[in-house]
Design a protein around this nucleic acid. Structure first.
Lengths: 214, 214
DNA sequence: ACTATACGGTACTGAGGAGTTTCGGATCTG
DNA sequence: CAGATCCGAAACTCCTCAGTACCGTATAGT
């Protein structure tokens, strides 16, 4: 939220007594926090690491956030899905085309970064529901939403049956990518995602291989 | 390995000088470690917690394992899949029957426990490849293996096409169950697993709903 | 009974990290 | 320039926890 307040409007009222707080360095600090989080995990992360990376003083951190957990919560909540633009989703005319169109190097990279952050947070999610909700909204929900849109479109245009379990199918790619990175510790590359689409989703939805061979 | 040495043979040679080490409490301690691990995660777990839970002294812990990380590694490596008996896998004659037969309350419970342990380990896996391998062998590989067996059987008996991507399909259930528990933090119940089988796996493999409606 | 060993308990050491305080310098206001 | 505010740096407190040392006791072998 902080990150947005800054970019949207240049500090509403700077009057009153003296001058209003800038907090102009918030975005850099939150980004630094996310980086450290991805590299070391929640428990491995220290306030000093984040401060050093953002070239900020430790005191500055505590002037702005009351505790480490609040800082992390804010960092996760402010994290913007830089990769998904809901106003400009691909629309290729076929379900497979739409799904494949989402596979782009920057998108894969972004997803991997988010999964690394997620890895560092997972053990906390149990004990911190607020953080769990923020992580869900910032990292997992957007992906599933895109898939849901694609599947619903395909149903509307009659490409696939309306009986398809859209909810479950939308979670296949996110789930299996997460499992592969977090647990199997293998990279999620284009080939893997395509094998998911052609080996699971397309067959599951009744589109046979022959129909998509050009 | 320790756990097994004990049950298999009553201390091979107890001669030499004095008497051989008992380490008879190892299993209790390792079990306690797994419990604490599931409850608090790797970083939250302390040696004192484990010792207290196993009613052991802290010194005993360090007489047996040189460090916390070695203890955890041993605990994970010794963890036995209490739920899967590879000599007595269900064989119902149909793929769907086999998959459904694996859904049993104790099996679900065991899987949930393992996922909780996994949640506490994930952030460590990156920094400790040895632990990652042990966790993989003990918790994820067995599940996938069972599914692979079922799919291969189904291919052999001609129930499904040999072109099916067995490898990927075998990972659908483990992946999506893990995602649901670890990230979505929702319970994995019978209904969810069945929706996976009937909403993803069966369709993906070309078995239509009509064919299984009794 | 005597001795050795393993164990449980407790006290200790040392390192590291959360959170606090202080201070000196930079920057803006007038 | 004078006054106020913010910030980076560093020193400091307090606490937790990994790992160690020691001791009293239970037990098993001789």
């Amino acid at each position: 939220m902080t990150q947005l307040d800054l970019t949207e409007q240049p500090e509403a009222e700077a009057s009153k007594l003296g001058r209003k707080r800038d907090h102009t360095r918030d975005p850099e600090i939150l980004d630094a926090a996310l980086e450290v989080l991805a590299e070391t995990g929640y428990d491995g992360m220290t306030i000093d690491m984040v401060a050093a990376r953002a070239k900020a003083g430790k005191a500055t951190m505590y002037r702005r956030w009351p505790s480490k957990s609040e800082l992390v919560l804010d960092a996760v909540a402010c994290m913007k899905s830089a990769d998904i633009d809901f106003d400009r989703l691909p629309d290729t005319g076929t379900l497979r085309g739409d799904l494949i169109a989402m596979i782009k190097p920057p998108s894969i990279k972004d997803a991997e970064t988010k999964l690394k952050i997620m890895a560092g947070l997972i053990s906390m999610l149990t004990r911190n529901p607020e953080l769990a909700d923020a992580a869900n909204a910032a990292m997992v929900e957007p992906r599933a939403t895109v898939n849901r849109i694609f599947f619903k479109r395909a149903i509307e245009r009659g490409e696939i049956s309306p009986d398809c379990d859209v909810e479950t199918l939308s979670l296949v790619t996110p789930s299996m990518a997460a499992y592969r990175v977090l647990i199997l510790r293998k990279p999620v590359d284009r080939a893997f995602l395509i094998s998911l689409i052609d080996g699971v989703l397309m067959p599951a939805v009744g589109i046979v291989a022959a129909a998509r061979t050009r």
